[in-house]
Design a protein around this nucleic acid. Structure first.
Lengths: 114, 114
DNA sequence: TCCATATTTCCACGATTATCGAATCATTGA
DNA sequence: TCAATGATTCGATAATCGTGGAAATATGGA
C-alpha cells in the first residue's frame, strides 16, 4: 500500500459522518446496507450522504453494488486490513505496535484501550 | 479511545507532509528530532512545518520538549497504538483484521501488503 | 407509457485547510 | 546587554471540504 492511497483512506475516515458510516457498514457485514437505510441511520440528508459515500468509495474503503432501485454499500475489509497493516509497519516503529499481547482479539484490545 | 480524538488523529495523518513527518519521527525513535532537522529532511519552510507540527501535537500523536534553543519532537507510540487498536476493534468487524497470520511481525506484514 | 421510488449530480455557500514571508518570541553565548 | 540562532505566530491568499435543496438519472411496476 503506497502512501498516496493511505492518505486518501485516512482522510476519508477523518470525518465524523464518514467514520460513523464506515463503522456502520463494518457492523452490517458483507451484505451491506442500502444508501437510504444509511441516511436514515445516520440522520444525514441524501445528497450529503451521497457525497460521503463517494469519498469512501474513492478511497477504496467501500464497495457499491446495485439491487433493484437500491444501491448497496459494503465495507471493503481488505482495504482496511491493508491500511492497518501500513500503519503498523510504517508508523509504529516497524515492530507490531498493537497491544503487546498475542494476536489482537476483541477482548484484549478493549482491555488495553479502555 | 473515543471517536473525536480518533478523527483528529486520522486527519492529522491524512496529509502528505504530516504522514512523512510522523514516519520520520517514528524512525528517529524516542530521542526525536529538532524542528530544524525535520524541516531540512522534508524540504518544507519553517513556518509551514510549524503548522504541521502543531496539527500532530494537537492530535496527541507527537510530543515536544525543549533542548536549549531547539524544540525536539518525538512520536507518541502509545497514541499510535491506541489508534491502531481503535481501527482494529471498531472498523475491522471486531476480529483482528491484521494479516491473518499470527501476531504482526514486520516480515509478514511486508509480505502481505507488498 | 407513466408514475413512484432510490440515489446521484449540480450548484451555491460558508467553513476549514495548506502555504509561506515577515514579524515576533525564547534561549544561548560573548 | 546585545547579537545570533532556532522556532513560533501572524496575516494574507488560494484551494479544498462539507452542506443541503433542487434538478436530473436509473429502475421497477401498473
Amino acid at each position: 500500500m503506497e502512501s498516496e492511497i493511505v492518505i486518501r483512506a485516512l482522510g476519508a475516515l477523518a470525518q465524523e459522518h464518514r467514520l460513523a458510516l464506515f463503522r456502520l457498514l463494518v457492523q452490517a457485514g458483507p451484505e451491506g446496507l442500502a444508501a437510504g437505510a444509511i441516511a436514515e441511520a445516520l440522520g444525514v440528508p441524501a445528497s450529503s450522504l451521497s457525497f460521503h459515500l463517494a469519498q469512501l468509495t474513492n478511497a477504496g474503503l467501500i464497495a457499491q453494488r446495485r439491487d433493484g432501485r437500491s444501491l448497496i454499500y459494503s465495507a471493503d475489509y481488505g482495504a482496511m486490513t491493508a491500511l492497518v497493516g501500513f500503519l503498523m509497519e510504517n508508523c509504529c516503529g516497524g515492530a507490531a505496535c498493537a497491544p503487546a499481547a498475542g494476536c489482537a482479539t476483541e477482548s484484549n484490545i478493549e482491555r488495553k484501550s479502555a
